[in-house]
Design a protein around this nucleic acid. Structure first.
Length: 586
RNA sequence: GCCCGCGUAGCUCAGGGGAUAGAGCAACUGCCUCCUAAGCAGUAGGCCGCAGGUUCGAAUCCUGCCGCGGGCACCA
């Protein structure tokens, strides 16, 4: 059990002994480090509950606590309990953390969790808009797995809607003689795609824009969509090319970010399930007809705003992404046994997910015990505060951002004269890792729901609150440990700390379990990012105050090496949970 | 119009109803014959958008207003 959990349990028991809620005993890190290491504020609300004086209540709690391990247990202000541990107790906690591969972080689960990275679409190269869900979702899957959950991550490609019909019509206009459009064609279709992803990227916006003023084209696209969904052979074959050329590019971009998806499913994965689903929802009366379309009424009496019905099928019978989302959810719950389904998708989709979740409950697709959550996030903005654009106003492609980050990282590494004794390959590897760290930390240090300003110059700096700084801080510890090892020195049993910087570092290590749990509970990796930065700072202060390799007392030196080794492990772990890897040297 | 989110230091952003609101950058002052100074120590910088309310206690919860962004069924 973590230090904070142990203390909370001890104080909780004291409150319980007074006939009060043990939750009042929650112990947290003190916000007045000049006064104490920890604090418990429970006496104030407890006094209110019990109708007693807060300070008297605090005294009663203190009196009933076994003082072993505490250097100070005192009451301050209106009834705050200030708690400071003895140096021996701190050493004992360090010993436990140092001896635990999980650094005292508890396990959870295992629950079956599905994480959906919405937003990837056929015919669209990954762009800036995909960066946040990918980085945040990847961090969440790493955190969940570390805590012990069974995670299935699914890119959930948008590959089955009206855009497909538009693309088919676009290709037909360019080359109507292709066999895909020939109903009489009975042979194999060409294995080579008639279009590249670049072609599709140009084609889609053109066709999409023209449908607004060209009803015939719009109608043709709708019809093509319906026929594709109905299984028309030529369209399926052409569509498969669209998917293939898109995925080839997207897989590369995702790999460049060092992100892994378990599944590359799409909306089309559940294509065969759509008709039966719609039929059964109609039969059960959950869905009904409205203006020719099939809808599910999801409004509730106490809604503040009117929630429009979920559109399950258009009046022409075509499926929509609401349809595929419901069918996909059904598959995730029934086939994968998902107990939690997390959708890491832009905030702008919140109404859509509200509708889908309500419909899923109403239809019995998602039983009450299954958690459905829209893990929403904000946008990446340019210096002007509006969503990031290229110089000519376009949407920046992700590979461009990654390339820019790599170039900037390589330049930084050169300027800083880092790793001069490394080989060219190693230096390139460092630059790649630094680039990914810059992008990921630059994103994850912000709270998920806030919009943030993309500033590559700032993100790639080795100075300040950045990914590269944390990598460097970690490598520096690795370097000390290597030097110690070469000198025949090894980490040993922790002894009582003698320096404030040393105590502060141990305390930072001791609070990591709560940080990781909170990050998961809130789906907020920024807590881990912040904590990693604080830990690095605490180590740097320790590093200034306590010269490990020059220390003459061998027991103290071994203890300090243990502290350094544990810090190095903790930083490596926290960065890993953010999806950031640390080079051995730099 | 209705609904959702945001508004905190010059800039970028954190902040479980609790004590004196923090960090990074930028600015200024110190510290490298010493384990990687991409660091450390320090100074300066705030009507936490505005006005009410709840509370022993509000940046945090509630209401209203102002400003910015977003959403509101046959697109995704």
């Amino acid at each position: 059990m973590s230090l904070l959990a142990l203390l909370s349990e001890q104080f909780g028991a004291a409150f319980a002994a007074q006939g009060l809620d043990p939750d009042l005993g929650e112990v947290v890190v003190s916000n007045r480090p000049d006064l104490a290491q920890f604090q418990c504020n429970g006496a104030l609300p407890a006094a209110k509950q019990a109708g007693r004086n807060p300070r008297e209540m605090a005294e009663a709690i203190v009196d009933s606590i076994d003082g072993a391990g505490f250097a100070d247990l005192s009451i301050a202000g209106p009834g705050f309990l200030n708690i400071t541990l003895t140096d021996d107790a701190l050493a004992g906690h360090l010993a436990r953390i140092a001896g635990d591969a999980r650094l005292d972080i508890p396990s959870r689960g295992p629950e079956q969790i599905v994480i959906d990275f919405g937003g990837y679409n056929v015919a669209k190269a990954t762009h800036v808009g995909h960066m946040r869900p990918t980085i945040i979702g990847d961090s969440l899957q790493r955190i969940a797995r570390f805590l012990g959950h069974q995670v299935t991550s699914d890119i959930h490609l948008g590959d089955w809607g009206l855009q497909m019909g538009m693309l088919i019509e676009g290709v037909r206009e360019q080359d109507p003689d292709l066999p895909y459009f020939n109903d009489a064609w009975i042979g194999e279709y060409p294995s080579e795609s008639p279009v590249t992803l670049a072609d599709l990227q140009v084609l889609y916006p053109q066709v999409s824009a023209r449908t607004k003023s060209d009803p015939e084209l719009a109608e043709a696209a709708r019809k093509a969509t319906l026929e594709l969904q109905g299984g028309r052979r030529g369209y399926r074959a052409l569509w498969q090319h669209f998917v293939d050329v898109t995925l080839a590019s997207q897989r590369q971009d995702v790999a460049d970010l060092d992100v892994h998806f378990d599944l590359w499913y799409g909306e089309s994965t559940v294509a065969e399930d759509l008709d039966p689903l719609i039929r059964s929802l109609l039969e059960s009366g959950v869905a009904g007809k409205s203006d020719g379309a099939i809808v599910i009424d999801v409004a509730e009496p106490d809604d503040k705003a009117e929630i429009p019905p979920l559109l399950l099928a258009k009046s022409d019978g075509a499926a929509l992404y609401t349809t595929t989302d419901l069918a996909t959810l059904q598959m995730r719950i029934d086939v994968f046994g998902a107990r939690e389904v997390l959708y890491v998708v832009d905030s702008r989709q919140s109404l859509h997910f509200e509708q889908v979740f309500r419909a899923a409950r109403k239809a019995g697709i998602a039983p009450p015990e299954v958690v459905l959550e829209h893990v929403d996030h904000g946008t990446i903005n340019g210096p002007d505060g509006s969503p990031l654009k290229t110089r000519d106003g376009g949407v920046p492609p992700l590979h461009g951002l990654i390339d820019d980050a790599k170039a900037a990282a390589a330049k930084r590494v050169d300027e800083a004269r880092i790793g001069l004794d490394l080989s060219e390959d190693e230096r390139a590897d460092v630059a790649t890792k630094v680039a990914a760290a810059a992008l990921k930390f630059g994103d994850l240090i912000n709270h998920r729901t806030s919009n943030y300003v993309f500033d590559l110059d700032r993100f790639t700096s080795f100075e300040g609150k950045t990914g590269p700084y944390l990598q460097y801080a970690t490598v520096r510890i690795t370097s000390i440990l290597r030097k110690a090892d070469e000198a025949g020195l090894a980490p040993g049993a922790p002894i009582a700390p003698s320096e404030d910087a040393e105590r502060a570092l141990i305390l930072r290590l001791a609070t990591i379990p709560e940080t990781v749990l909170r990050a998961w509970d809130l789906r907020a990796p920024n807590h881990i990012a912040e904590s990693a930065f604080d830990l690095a700072g605490a180590f740097n202060r320790f590093y200034e105050a306590c010269h490990i390799l020059r220390e003459e007392d061998p027991r103290r030196q071994a203890s300090w090496l243990q502290l350094a080794a544990t810090t190095q492990r903790a930083l490596t772990l926290m960065l890993d949970l953010l999806g950031i890897s640390v080079p051995q040297r730099m």
